[in-house]
Design a protein around this nucleic acid. Structure first.
Lengths: 331, 331
DNA sequence: CCGCCTGTTGTTATCGATATCATTCATCGC
DNA sequence: GCGATGAATGATATCGATAACAACAGGCGG
């Protein structure tokens, strides 16, 4: 920056100001400075800037997996929502693992983000403490934690499951199974399963057809394998609700290979409104949790908090209403 | 850090050393310091550390889209390969847009990464200049640029296309179409198309059945729509090679809706070895470009360059050999 | 007993920017 | 004509760490 200042014949301070859009600088001076910077190929050092101004321009975000269209959409929403304010997303993934999350959060906090977004509302004790003591806005997403750390932008996974059950029952099915991952790791998946069991029991139906497809994330292949196990164990199953559209699609393909008619012999429902559930044959009934919106609303909330507006605890929960997409796989 | 030093009764410098694993610090002193840090909930400031040591611990990476399993796999490989050296990936996506790439690269460079990874070998002039003058290792991936900026870890998209054409011809098809995106934006997609045309012509076949599915990325839906257009324009088409498995799957579903037998009436091939191509019915012939490996090898190369080993320009191209996965959709 | 090495810790200057206060100069109203 | 006002710029200290060098204690060989 000193070089640019010399080249433009001004002080470093003026160069610094020229690069911030709002500061007092003569238009011609600014133009001269930007030209000099261009000539020298100068690029600002955000790190130094952050150290000095105590604003790094980072918003940290953790997602369970980078290879997941749902979380990718949320990250897109977050990124786009923050772009206008010059905030950059610093991303990390946890592999659906709380210890990994703790390690990751610690690493991210060393970068002094101005806010941190985490997926889910269940964390290790140390992780919670770190988040709570970080002194920055913390937003938990994709979930409705009973004891939020700070702000929440999410929805009820359990209620969404109930919508599916309701729909399946309304179409005349009662022997309904749930196909999901191991209970322990993916808390959202677990909530969906919990919602399934609760709603089934509330309707006086048998809620014991639970097939575990392995540790999350459940791949299409695992969905297919799980369906095979399901049908050999409970051959009279009339419908299966899957923890995600990927598992659901895998299950659908297994039905096709085995010659089970969908939805005639068995109905299949998924979760997440992935593109595949909309285009496959037959298309799969799903739940749209508004992934992109989650990211966008999270961005809005962060900007609100950073602007010092409305830090009141009253509005700290932003609830989304997932939508049931009824398609041919359950018609 | 000063607080921790006081708490532990040592100088800040000793605290700093205690946090670096290799430095000279008495074991007991270190233990005491780490304990004190824990008590105070202290987390290092990597930004300040980076400023001082001129090592930020960042490796910047740009990918066209965050919502793409192929690039996600590459990022996973990169992240895992760099983790051992304590390097953190700073990710950004370009939306398959060169202007966006330029903006993004500029933003990333302000973070003073120790190396930068870009997807593809075609960039705007300014972007090239910035990359070349950044003074850090630059790795271009997923491509074989004719004039690399620095290092390359990639493969020939054109040659991979040729493999598909060869396979389709070997199974007795000659009326073969290519289904891809607009030429201008996605250079890898364009290379695949170029490889298709070249190989078709080399075999004396008609290479004019080119269907444009719109600007990349091509969704499943766009693949389906494009197939519909293809079949109405050239109803006698015997095989279609798609720019990606997603487009290919979309095309497959369209065939199912229209009652075209795959592979009996028409064969379909994709690209990318996405999970879907392996599990759908029938499974789709594809090319596995070793996405994860690209990331891993890129990480290795970066570590090599940062260690000061072998900066020789001789070995700066790392070539991968994509694999043809023959499946039922072209049998 | 001296000088030297090793292990350990402290001191000082510095990384590249910005916050804050100070300064300069032109303009304006009375 | 003079103080007040405001736009534009500069000087200095500082953000939180580390590099580089200095310092000191203890052990060892000669």
């Amino acid at each position: 920056m000193a070089d640019v200042a010399r080249e433009a014949g001004v002080s470093p301070m003026t160069v610094s100001r020229a690069f911030k859009s709002d500061a007092y600088v003569n238009d011609e001076t600014r133009k001269a400075i930007l030209l000099a910077a261009d000539r020298l190929g100068y690029v600002m050092d955000s790190m130094a800037s952050g150290l000095s101004s105590r604003k790094t321009g980072f918003v940290a975000a953790t997602i369970p997996s980078i290879n997941n269209a749902n979380f990718a959409d949320t990250v897109r929403g977050l990124t786009e929502g923050l772009q206008a304010r010059g905030l950059q997303v610093l991303l990390g993934y946890t592999n659906y693992n709380q210890e990994e999350e703790e390690r990751l959060v610690r690493q991210l906090l060393t970068r002094r983000p101005e806010a941190i977004v985490v997926t889910g509302g269940t964390h290790s004790g140390k992780c919670r403490t770190m988040l709570a003591n970080a002194g920055i806005p913390v937003i938990e997403t994709w979930d409705l934690p009973t004891e939020p750390i700070d702000s929440v932008v999410g929805f009820s996974n359990a209620d969404a499951s109930a919508m599916i059950v309701g729909h399946l029952v309304a179409t005349g099915r009662t022997k309904i199974a749930f196909l999901g991952g191991d209970a322990s790791r993916d808390t959202r998946g677990f909530d969906r399963r919990r919602g399934f069991v609760r709603e089934m029991e509330a309707r006086g139906l048998d809620a014991t057809r639970l097939i575990e497809a392995g540790p999350p994330p459940i791949s299409m292949r695992e969905g297919a394998d799980a369906l095979a196990r399901l049908m050999s164990r409970w051959p009279d199953t009339e419908a299966v609700m899957c923890v995600s559209d990927l598992a659901a699609f895998g299950a659908l393909t297994e039905c096709q290979r085995r010659g089970f008619d969908v939805p005639g012999a068995i109905a299949i429902a998924g979760f997440g409104a992935y593109e595949i559930s909309d285009i496959c044959v037959p298309p799969i009934t799903s739940i749209d949790p508004h992934c992109f919106q989650i990211g966008l609303l999270t961005a809005r909330r962060i900007i609100e908090l950073l602007s010092g507006e409305a830090p009141g605890q009253t509005e700290s929960r932003t609830l989304l209403e997932p939508i049931l997409l009824v398609r041919a796989s359950t018609s």
